[in-house]
């Protein structure tokens, strides 16, 4: 089982000049290929900050983060942009999709940025939309989709670039129970069938239930890290 994310002693400190706030405080994190991990904790505990750090959107003040053995904390901003494009999938809490593009175009856009050719893009779009169950909504604009449908398209988009892992920051926060459960089903299925690594933050108990590993953050520290016994890891 290969390591995807390796974070050593990372800290993120806000407000350094006055009263320093440790949004992330000396965290070690090790994520393997194929994990389905939930990051939980109360609001303000540092979930978003941690996801931003391992997603290369932000830099730690201390420590270093390696993705597949590559130190992203030492990368220049321009290199990081390209690194994100090729290695990391993102699902945000809201405002995920580009409103002027259709669902299909939102997904295709990323692949186009990656320089994937038309035939391959088309094939991948078909697969992804089948997986998220929105084949009939491909040509809808985000405004014509429900919140749950939008998040499913966001998952498809995150996967379009065949990333090393997908980071999802409270992906179900704005969804009703049914949509949230449906989104989790899709994510779990993709994890199971395609061995895609998901790390998602949440404070929704029903979502936490679905995770196979639960990391709890309190005040920027990891206070517990528990793995559930599961059959999936064996293959």
């Amino acid at each position: 089982m290969s390591t995807v994310i390796d974070a050593h002693n990372i800290s993120k400190i806000y407000n350094k000049e006055n009263i320093p706030v440790y949004a992330i405080n000396n965290v070690h994190l090790h994520i393997n290929q194929g994990e389905f991990t939930a990051l939980v904790g109360p609001s303000g505990s540092g979930k978003t900050t941690l996801l931003n750090l391992i997603g290369g959107l932000d830099k730690p003040d201390e420590g270093k983060i390696e993705i597949n053995g590559i130190d992203i904390t030492a990368m220049s901003p321009n290199k990081l942009i390209d690194f994100r494009l090729r290695n990391i999938g993102f699902v945000f809490q809201s405002f995920n999709l580009i409103p002027v593009l259709t669902a299909r175009e939102n997904v295709e856009f990323i692949m186009q940025l990656q320089g994937i050719n038309k035939t391959e893009r088309e094939a991948r779009i078909q697969t992804l939309f089948r997986q998220i169950g929105l084949e009939d909504k491909m040509d809808s604009r985000p405004s014509q989709l429900s919140g749950g449908q939008q998040q499913r398209v966001a998952v498809a988009r995150a996967l379009a670039s065949k990333p090393q892992f997908v980071l999802a920051d409270e992906p179900t926060a704005n969804l009703d129970t049914a949509s949230a459960s449906n989104l989790l089903d899709i994510m779990a299925l993709l994890n199971k069938e395609e061995n895609i690594t998901f790390i998602f933050s949440t404070h929704d108990a029903r979502v936490i239930e679905r995770a196979r590993r639960v990391i709890t953050l309190v005040d920027g520290r990891i206070t517990s890290d528990t793995a559930k016994v599961d059959t999936h890891v064996q293959h």
Binding site: G55, L57, N78, I81, D82, R84, L85, R86, F90, F92, F95, N96, L97, I98, P99, I110, L113, Q114, R157, S161
Partner: peptide
């Protein structure tokens, strides 16, 4: 929106 595009890897 611009934030999303940059996060996703639009240079």
């Amino acid at each position: 929106e611009i934030g999303v595009m940059m996060a996703l890897g639009m240079n």
